[in-house]
Design a protein around this nucleic acid. Structure first.
Lengths: 226, 226, 226, 226
DNA sequence: TATGAATGAGTGTTCATTCAT
DNA sequence: AATGAATGAACACTCATTCAT
C-alpha cells in the first residue's frame, strides 16, 4: 500500500507544483498572457503532462481560484466567533483577508481569476432580482453580512445589500486585476492592501446609518495586525 | 495650398470615419472580439490603410478613449458655472456624464477602453507619491475636486484625494467593462447608470465630513434629468 | 482595370495552385494523412495564407470534390444526346467518366472525398424513404436513370432504384478509396478502371429484366475509347 | 508447470478481455473515435499493460478482425454439408453470416476493420495476377466458390472470379463502414442486412449464366431464417 | 508482470502586422 | 496614398507510444 500511497502523494505534489507555477506566472504576467505552453515550460513539463492533470486551461485556472477561496473560507469559518453582528463580521472578514495575504500574496488571484473564469461575473450586474450562481460564495457571504447590518440598524435602511456586495467585490477585483498587470517588481503589496482598506472603509461609511460612530467603521491595516 | 488643405481635411475625415466604425464595433461586440480585420471591413478600407492612420491596434483604441474623454471635458468646461464648490463640481460632473450618455452611450467606452489600452491604469495605483501620466485628465479632474471639497470642509480632512479619485475611476471602469461583455441586446443602460449612481453616492457619503447634510450628497438619475 | 483584373486572376491562380497541390497530396497519401501544414508546405505558402483562400480544411476538401463533380457534370450534360433511354444514359455516363479519367486521374477524388466530407454519405443508407441532401447530384442522376430503365422495361420491375444507385456509388467510392491508399507508384489506373467497369457491368446484368440482350449491357473499357 | 499453465491461461484470458472491450467500444463509437486510452479504461487496465499484449494499436484492431473471421470460418466449416455446389456454398455462406449476425452484431467489424487495418485491402486490387496475402481467407473462400460455380456452369464463363470476390467484399465493407459511423442508436441491423442481401442477389444475378433460373439465386433475409 | 506518468509531435485555426505593388 | 496578400508565431488541445518503477 506504500506504493499506492506514494503514487497519490506524488500525483498530488505534481498538481500542487503545476498550480504553484501557474500562480507565479499569473502573478508575474497577468491572466491574458499566460498560456499552457508557458505553464508547461515553467513547470518543466510537457504540454501533454499538463493536460494529464488539468483537462482544460479553464479547469486549471478555476482550481487556483477555488483553492484560494476555499483556503480563505476555511480560515474564516474556523476563526469566526459566534454571534457576531453584521458589521463585526465584515470587519472580521477583512481581518482574515489581511492574515492570509500576509502568508501568501496569491490571495490576489481569488478575485482576479474569478473575472477570467466567469466572464459574467459578478453575474449580470444589472438584473438586481436574479440570484447569482450558487458558487459565488463570496457574494452571498458579504451580501448577508450587509443585510444583517441593515437589520441591526448599523447600515442605512435604504442600502441595497446586493448592490453593495457587488460593488465591494468589483472594486477588489478591479484593483487586484490592475496590480496583476504591473511588472512584478513594481508591485507594492502593502500599498495594494492599503488601497483596498481605505476603499472598504469609505464604503462602510457610505452605507452606515446616520449617527453611527465612525470609529466603529475603522479597519486595521497590514501593519496593525501583527 | 488648397490641395494641401484638402489632403489634410480628407486625412482627418478618414481618421474620424475609422474611429466611428471602431466605436460601433466595440459597442456591439466588446473589446476582446474586435480585430483589425473587422474594423477594416466595417470602414470599407484595407487593413493596410488602417495601419496608415494608426500604426498599432493599441493606438487606435487609445484614440477612441482620448477622443471621448476630450468631448466630455469640452462639454464639461463649456457648461461649468464659475466658482463651484468641490462637491457641486463633482455633482455637475456626474450630470455631464448623464447628459452625454443620453446623447450617445459610447461614453461607456471611455472607461472600458482605458482598461484595455493602459494596463497600468489608473497608473501605478500604489505609488501614492508619483504623479500619474498627464494624459489621465479625469483622474486629476476628480482628484482636484475632492481636494477642494476637503478644503471647503465638506469632505473628511483625512480623505486622501488620490485614492478616492482612483477608486471612483476604477469602479466605473469595472462596472462598464462587465457591461461591455454582455451582448448588446441584453444591456440595460438605465440600470448601468443607476448602478454607477448608487455607488457614486455611497462614496460621496463615505468621504463626507461628519454632520454634512445627506441630502446634499444625492445625485440625480437618468430619469430625473429631462 | 488591368490591375483589378490581374489581382483577380492571380487570386484565382493561387486558389487553383492550392487545389492542385492538395489534390496531389491527396492522391499520394490519402485523405486521412493530409493536414493543412502539409498542404501549406507543398504549396510553398504559410498556413495563414492557406486560410486566406479556404477558411476551413473542410471547405478546401469540399471544393476539390465539387470542382471535379462540376467538371464531370458539365462534360456530361454538354455531350449528352437528347432523348436517351435510361440504359443508354447510364452507359453514356460511364463513357464520360472514362473520357475525363483519361484527361486527369483526379476523377478518383470525386468519390473518395465525398466520403470524407459527408460522413453520412451516401446518406443514411438504410432509411430508404428519406430523400438525400439535394447536393448529392450523382445519386439522383443515377437513380433517375435506373428508374427510367425500369419504366422502359429494361430493368427488373422489382429493382429498387434507390438501393442500386447507392450501391453503385458506394462501390465506386470504396474501390477508389482503397486505391488512394496505395503508394502512388503502385497504382495502376488502367486496372482501377477495369475493375470498376466489370463491376458496373455485373450490376447492370444483375438488375436487367430477364430476356434483355446481354450485349446491350456491355460497357467499353479504357482501351476501347480512343 | 502448473504455474506455467496458469500464467498462459491468464494471459490468454486477458487478451480476450481486451479484445472484447475493444469490440464493444468500436461498435459503440466507430473506429475513428476509439483510442488506446479508452480501451485501457474500459478494460480496467493501464495503457502500459495494453501494450504488453498488443504492441501496436493496429495489431489489436487487426486481431479483432482475425478473430471474428476465424469464428466465422469455424462455424462455416463445421456446418457445411459436403459436396455442395459453388452456388449453394455461396448461399450457405450467406446463411452463416446471417446466423452469426443474429448471435452478435459484431460481425459488422470483420469488414469494417479490415479497412482500417489493411489499407492495402482487399490487397492490391488491381494486380490481377498477384495472389493476395494468404491471410485474406474470405477472399479465397469466396473466390473459389465462384470459380466452382463457373465450372459447374451456373456462372458466366467470362466471369473473373477474383474481381467478383473482391467486389463482394468491398461492397460489404463499404456498407458496414458507413453503418459503423452512425450513432449506435440509429443503426438498424435489419436494414443493414437487407441492404447487403439485395446487393448480393444482384451480383449473383449479374454473374449468373444466361438461362439460369432466377429463383435459384434468391437469398434469405433475416426474418426468413428463424 | 503491471503500472500510469510522461512525452512531443501533431491537429486545425486565429490575427496583428508587414510589404511589394 | 492605398491596397490586400502574405506571414508566422501563437493558441488550446490530442494521442499513440515509451519507460522508470
Amino acid at each position: 500500500m506504500g506504493i499506492q500511497d506514494r503514487r497519490e502523494r506524488e500525483k498530488s505534489e505534481r498538481r500542487q507544483h503545476i498550480l504553484r507555477c501557474t500562480k507565479e506566472l499569473l502573478m508575474e504576467h497577468g491572466v491574458d498572457s499566460v498560456g499552457m505552453a508557458d505553464i508547461a515550460k515553467k513547470a518543466e513539463l510537457s504540454k501533454g503532462t499538463l493536460y494529464l492533470y488539468f483537462s482544460k486551461k479553464e479547469d486549471l485556472f478555476k482550481e487556483i481560484c477555488d483553492e484560494a477561496a476555499e483556503r480563505f473560507l476555511k480560515h474564516f469559518y474556523a476563526a469566526m466567533p459566534p454571534d457576531m453582528s453584521g458589521l463585526d463580521a465584515l470587519k472580521f472578514c477583512w481581518r482574515c483577508y489581511l492574515d492570509m495575504f500576509g502568508e501568501s500574496e496569491d490571495m490576489i488571484l481569488i478575485f482576479n481569476m474569478k473575472y477570467y473564469i466567469a466572464s459574467e461575473f459578478p453575474f449580470n450586474p444589472f438584473d438586481a432580482d436574479q440570484e447569482p450562481d450558487s458558487t459565488y460564495i463570496f457574494y452571498t457571504l458579504i451580501r448577508d453580512m450587509i443585510r444583517q447590518g441593515v437589520t441591526e440598524g448599523v447600515f442605512d435602511p435604504e442600502v441595497k445589500e446586493k448592490v453593495i456586495a457587488r460593488t465591494l467585490l468589483s472594486l477588489f477585483s478591479y484593483i487586484v486585476e490592475n496590480v496583476a498587470k504591473l511588472p512584478k517588481r513594481e508591485r507594492k503589496p502593502y500599498l495594494l492592501i492599503e488601497e483596498i482598506r481605505q476603499t472598504f472603509e469609505i464604503i462602510l461609511r457610505g452605507i452606515a446609518r446616520e449617527g453611527v460612530e465612525r470609529s466603529l467603521l475603522r479597519l486595521p491595516g497590514l501593519s496593525d495586525s501583527r
